[in-house]
Design a binder for these strands. Structure first.
Lengths: 222, 222
DNA sequence: CAACGTACCATAACAAGGTTATAGTACGTG
DNA sequence: CACGTACTATAACCTTGTTATGGTACGTTG
């Protein structure tokens, strides 16, 4: 019945995988210790033995979410047009969010499905930070390449990346929560916003437009 | 003992107010039917009589959140510099989010504190949409003024406003969830991002910079 | 080889919290 | 005064996180 997949995986990863899968399939409402245990063919105790409780399990699920985001962004090829690369990173980012909106929500929201949260709340845990950090790094690298190529004014790539991330996350979150329903999000918001931002960062308007028009073309390893 | 306030308010608004207050004070963990009832000096049944259940109550709380956001944005004066106005709207928006992060999370997240959600989930309810719409309108109006003043290229103000909203929400959400902790968010991310965006929209770099430098000055009715 | 400790897991009980059933009170209306 | 409606309180029910307890498998050690 479960969509857990691999039989070779240990119980720990099976539980995380089941949670991710249930989040995508039936939503946060069914993320319950009993349900997860049943899903992987174990008893409730598995949750406590391997994680300590639901909050800790969800912490791991969140981390897994960032791992998957990182993996997806890693697949975006590095080409000789860093601005196109940035556009493709954005598209991949949006795609990941749409494939499992509730997982995305768990990664960035302050609350969790069960109503409990993965620790205090303010600072993401060490490991959590590093996971999201790895995903963030893709943006930093792309920003650095854009600066090196003269497409973006010389400045701290971290700041530029944070700006891209804000734009991306804001757009994706509003889109997911339905607040952008009456617009053609991609063409009326995300793409023009990306172009505007790039132009503000120093790129020529035609160059930015041309680069972002290429984002849907093949994406093979350069 | 509650921080419910007004004794003249009916039970319905008292419950919503208590929820907002508890979200700010103790977090989503204490948003429980029994606790809310105790807070307003009633029995649990009040929640069911006035709302039907916790999900519907939270729907109302979400709406109240947008009402407050709208009220706050309404206080931002309309001056003869529409770009400064936009900056001030952004600052007010951020302030509202910081005053009650969990309420903000409830307004934009897909999940709710208790683990249940306010209906299906995809499209926000009618009333909900109109509440957020009212807040959104402030941005649309400001964008239209900026276009009329020649500070932004002529285009659909709704699209421009959605872009501003995305930028704002993305920044605020990342900031709240601690993902921007190692940066000086305001000065390294939000302000430069705003300037970049405005320049991309057509404003002159010096004008955008000057206008945004004015956002912290007095805010009296024009 | 036998005793033993540890890792792992199932069953069952406990506690908290959403929800429902039931019934009572107050009050306006005929 | 009879009656229906709005509102409220009490108590029970059910689901779900959690803990207690005990059992099995297996590697380690004497």
């Amino acid at each position: 019945m479960g969509t857990t997949g691999d039989v070779g995986a240990d119980m720990r990863s099976q539980l995380v995988a089941a949670t991710v899968s249930l989040l995508a399939g039936e939503g946060p409402g069914v993320i319950q210790a009993r349900r997860l245990a049943r899903e992987v063919g174990a008893s409730t105790m598995a949750v406590y033995h391997y994680f300590g409780g639901m909050p800790q399990l969800l912490t791991d699920v969140r981390e897994e979410g960032f791992r998957r985001l990182d993996a997806r962004l890693s697949e975006v090829a590095i080409t000789d047009d860093p601005v196109t690369d940035i556009g493709r990173l954005g598209l991949a980012y949006r795609q990941v969010a749409w494939e499992n909106p509730h997982l995305y929500d768990l990664m960035f929201g302050l609350s969790t499905p069960g109503g409990y949260r993965p620790e205090a709340h303010a600072p993401p845990a060490e490991s959590d930070r590093s996971s999201s950090q790895r995903a963030y790094t893709h943006l930093v690298d792309a920003a650095a390449r854009a600066i090196r190529a003269g497409r973006v004014r010389d400045q701290d790539p971290g700041s530029v990346a944070a700006q891209f991330w804000s734009v991306l996350h804001g757009y994706v979150a509003l889109e997911l929560s339905g607040h952008l329903d009456q617009l053609d999000g991609l063409n009326q918001v995300l793409i023009p916003m990306g172009i505007n931002h790039l132009v503000g960062l120093g790129d020529a308007p035609e160059d930015a437009t041309n680069s972002l028009e290429r984002i849907n073309t093949a994406n093979a390893e350069s």
